[in-house]
């Protein structure tokens, strides 16, 4: 069986509730997204939530009207329960990519994972950067398009185009489940670098 992990990004109260556009986009995606996570859990695959923790001394961390959101230990930093299960793994990150100065790579290696499914919010930032980082580390990358959220649909479309063009296979979550059930694995995209 394929050694697959689903990576979610930033499904946290503060970050989702930043504005109405984000709330609406997450609300719309939630049934398919949480359902897909449940299906993956049933199949024995790992769900890893990348939890953005903003550091108070990070000058580049985005402030919301002067307030630093998603600080360690706050309710706003918690993963929303609809996406969370007690069997899931949480990894804190302080930057956009889930690999940046975290032990995500080592954890994936220890689990024997060779394929990552990158999901979450927002498509054009954390999903793209985490996928890029995974690509450079040699992972096979899939993007379940209905489990990627952006406040603006145009940003999501552009992000999915970029991911498909450079480093990932972009399909919907139903197709991923079908491939896993019928093929037993997710075929690796052949990326030709010039």
């Amino acid at each position: 069986m394929a050694k697959v992990a689903v990576l979610t990004n930033d499904l946290q109260y503060d970050l989702v509730h930043k504005n109405q556009e984000r709330i609406d986009a997450v609300t719309e995606a939630t049934p398919a997204f949480s359902g897909f996570l449940n299906e993956m859990r049933k199949r024995g695959h790992h769900i890893i939530h990348l939890q953005l923790i903003n550091l108070p001394d990070d000058p580049n961390a985005e402030r919301y009207e002067g307030r630093l959101p998603s600080q360690k230990g706050t309710q706003g930093a918690e993963i929303m329960p609809v996406f969370l299960d007690e069997s899931d793994i949480l990894i804190e990150k302080n930057k956009d990519s889930g690999f940046y100065e975290t032990d995500l790579h080592e954890r994936l290696q220890a689990l024997g994972v060779d394929t990552v499914l990158v999901t979450g919010m927002q498509g054009q930032i954390c999903v793209q950067t985490t996928a890029a980082d995974a690509f450079f580390r040699g992972y096979n990358i899939y993007i379940p398009s209905d489990c990627v959220v952006s406040a603006q649909e145009a940003d999501k479309v552009r992000a999915l185009d970029w991911l498909e063009g450079y480093c990932a296979t972009v399909v919907d979550s139903a197709e991923i489940l079908r491939l896993l059930d019928t093929e037993g694995h997710l075929p690796r995209k052949i990326v030709k670098t010039p």
């Binding site: 580049n60 990150k93 302080n94 930057k95 956009d96 990519s97 690999f99 940046y100 100065e101 950067t129 985490t130 996928a131 890029a132 980082d133 995974a134 450079f136």
Partner: peptide, 10 residues
Amino acid sequence: VREGLGFESN
């Protein structure tokens, strides 16, 4: 490097 975008080591 500033934003942790995943390209810094490549």
